[in-house]
Computed example of a mutant assay.
Amino acid sequence: MPEVLRNAHFTVAVDPMARLVRVTRTAEPFDSLEQIERECMAVTAALAPVDRSAMSLLLDIRAAPGRNDPKFEEATLRLRTAAVRGFGCVAVLVGTPAGALQVRRHSREDGVDRIISDSEDELLAYLAAAPSRHR
């Protein structure tokens, strides 16, 4: 899958044939709220040319350091909504039950439905079937 962005915090790859965008969060912690904003805006910019309504998004956050302090949550609400809104289907790959709970809460807060699992195979199968079920 061709990469359109790679930095210390994210890798973004787009496969037009599979109609799939994959955003992978690395284990690198953020140093500041400003860095969060800058890196998330880079992801949003990398996704700008993508016709989101024709694509599914797989967000792999298994390696992401756990964090849910209020300042972080406030800073990321707008950013994560901008990154995921508009895709035909959104799937989130988590590594822990706590991660799944946090993603469910995010879904309630930002109104973007997501399927959540710790199984990459399950999510990829779901997304492969998404064009007939979700678009």
Rank of each mutant, 00 (worst) to 15 (best):
Q102I: 07
L127Q: 05
D69M: 05
D110E: 02
R108D: 06
P131F: 03
A27P: 00
I36Q: 10
R108S: 07
N7A: 11
T96F: 09
E120K: 12
G66Y: 11
E37Q: 12
T24S: 14
R19E: 13
R22C: 13
E37L: 08
V23E: 08
L127E: 04
A128K: 12
E37D: 13
E120R: 15
L93K: 09
T76F: 04
L93C: 11
F72V: 05
L123R: 10
C89M: 11
A83I: 03
V4Y: 09
A45D: 15
R104K: 13
S117Q: 12
R133S: 10
D31T: 10
P70H: 08
P2R: 11
H134K: 11
V4E: 11
I116A: 04
R114Q: 13
R25A: 12
A8V: 03
G95I: 06
E109L: 15
E120C: 12
H106D: 10
R105G: 03
A54S: 15
E3P: 06
K71N: 08
F30Q: 00
F10I: 05
D51E: 14
I36S: 00
G86F: 04
D118S: 15
I61N: 00
E28L: 01
E34D: 15
D121L: 13
R78A: 15
P131A: 07
I115R: 15
D15I: 12
F10Y: 15
R80Y: 04
